[in-house]
Simulated scan of single mutants.
Amino acid sequence: MSQDTVISLNLATTRQVWGFAEAVDGCLRAGITAISPWRDQIAAIGLNEAARIVKANNIQVTGVCRGGMFPAETAAGRQLQIDDNLRAIDEAAALNADCLVLVVGGLPGSSKDIVGTRQMVSDGIAAMLPHARASGVKIAIEPLHPMYAADRACVNTIDQALDICENLGETVGVAIDVYHVWWDPYLARAIARAGRMNRIFAHHICDWLVPTRDMLLDRGMMGDGVIDLKGIRRMIEDAGFHGPQEVEIFSQDNWWKRPGDEVLQVIKDRVATVC
């Protein structure tokens, strides 16, 4: 890790022990000055108070998690999701966030039409873009591992996300989470493409454990798994992104059970040695 590396704490990493304010206090104790909160954590403290805390402590908000979940079985259902995304834009704007991260959603109901579902995603993002642009909020599509294609995200590779970006314009980019993309045989090419398009808005890190006991809630601390973190970081920096390393770990049986200050110290040590 270079001396100027900035760590951002995705607040999912300490969500079982800290709320929004406690997480900010813990980050400041650890010398971490960037966060990425989830919308339920913002709602729990109130948007005005969250914004006050961010401004008072000069905190960088690398992203707000999350918007998306566009697909639905009916036009009315899709409009409800778009309306929720418009509210998410307002929250991201209030926190002066670098981007609003999208987990785009999976197949609606009993549908087997993944191509049509991806079109719902593109249409949903297009519908929210005028408000995003007027609010100064960038939209970051986060491709998720294919194991989530049915229920969480039908956009599963950086290239799929960039195809949507090309159609929608420069306000839309990607959040590259190593947990979801490390396996992609075309990863280097896709990251380089994202760099040429200037569409890398966030870089999330953790590790893939072997074995993984739960595909959602058993992410590893950096260095405990098989992801080539340094290699992917090199690709992303070569592509022109030098923003914070955002640590996002869902770990119901390990890291979520540990004191927050301990987790942050391990994060700092690992980013310094293995990332």
Results as ranks from 00 to 15, higher is better:
Gly225Trp: 14
Gln252Met: 08
Gly31Thr: 05
His180Ala: 05
Gln119Thr: 12
Ser251Leu: 02
Pro143Gln: 07
Ala92Pro: 03
Gly173Ala: 11
Gln265Cys: 04
Leu264Arg: 09
Thr33Arg: 15
Phe201Ala: 02
Gln160Asp: 01
Trp183Ser: 13
Asp177Pro: 01
Ala44Arg: 15
Trp18Glu: 04
Lys138Tyr: 09
Arg118Tyr: 01
Thr62Tyr: 03
Ile59Trp: 07
Asn198Val: 01
Asp159Ser: 06
Val24Leu: 15
Ala56Cys: 13
Leu11Ala: 09
Val210Pro: 08
Thr62Ala: 09
Leu100Val: 06
Thr117Glu: 07
Asn85Met: 02
Ile227Gly: 05
Leu9Cys: 05
Thr74Gln: 09
Ile125Glu: 04
Leu129Glu: 07
His242Glu: 12
Ala76Phe: 04
Ala76Val: 04
Pro130Glu: 07
Ile45Ala: 09
Ser110Thr: 11
Ala21Leu: 05
Met147Leu: 11
Phe250Ala: 10
Gly169Trp: 13
Thr13Trp: 11
Gln265Phe: 03
Gly195Gln: 08
Thr117Lys: 10
Pro37Met: 13
Lys268Pro: 01
Asp113Cys: 05
Arg234Gly: 01
Asp98Glu: 13
Ala149Phe: 04
Ala153Pro: 00
Gly136Lys: 03
Arg213Phe: 13
Val247Thr: 08
Leu209Cys: 08
Asp269Lys: 08
Ile35Asp: 02
Leu229Met: 14
Ile158Gly: 04
Leu86Arg: 13
Ser135Val: 00
Cys99Pro: 11
Ala50Pro: 02
Asp163Phe: 07
Lys230Val: 14
Ile205Met: 13
Ala175Cys: 15
Cys165Tyr: 08
Leu216Thr: 12
Gln3Asn: 13
Gly173Val: 12
Val104Trp: 06
Leu11Thr: 12
Val17Arg: 13
Gly231Tyr: 05
Gly19Ala: 10
Asn57Ile: 01
Val115Ala: 14
Arg193Cys: 10
Thr33Asp: 13
Met1Ser: 15
Gly68Tyr: 08
Leu47Phe: 00
Ala132Arg: 06
Gly46Ser: 01
Ala75Phe: 07
Ile53Tyr: 13
Ile139Val: 14
Ile125Gly: 03
Asp25Met: 09
Arg52Tyr: 11
Asp228Trp: 08
Gly240Ser: 00
Thr33Lys: 15
Gly106Lys: 09
Val101Glu: 02
Thr157Phe: 00
Lys55Pro: 00
Val210Arg: 15
Ser8Asp: 05
Asn57Trp: 03
Ala239Gln: 03
Arg193Glu: 12
Gln60Phe: 03
Pro108Thr: 03
Lys268Asn: 06
Leu229Val: 10
Ile232Val: 14
Arg39Val: 15
Asp253Thr: 07
Gly223Val: 03
Val178Ser: 11
Gly243Tyr: 10
His145Arg: 04
Ala94Thr: 00
Gly223Arg: 04
Ala56Arg: 14
Gly105Tyr: 05
Ala194Asn: 06
Gln16Ala: 14
Gln41Ser: 13
Ala56Tyr: 09
Asn48Asp: 15
Leu11Asn: 12
Met221Pro: 02
Phe20Gln: 10
Val155Asn: 03
Val172Gln: 11
Phe241Glu: 12
Gly173Ile: 07
Arg52Leu: 11
Ala51Phe: 00
Gln252His: 08
Ala134Pro: 00
Ile227Gln: 04
Pro211Asn: 09
Thr117Gln: 07
Ala76Tyr: 04
Val172Phe: 10
Asp90Tyr: 00
His180Ser: 06
Ala30Trp: 04
Arg199Gln: 02
Ile82Met: 06
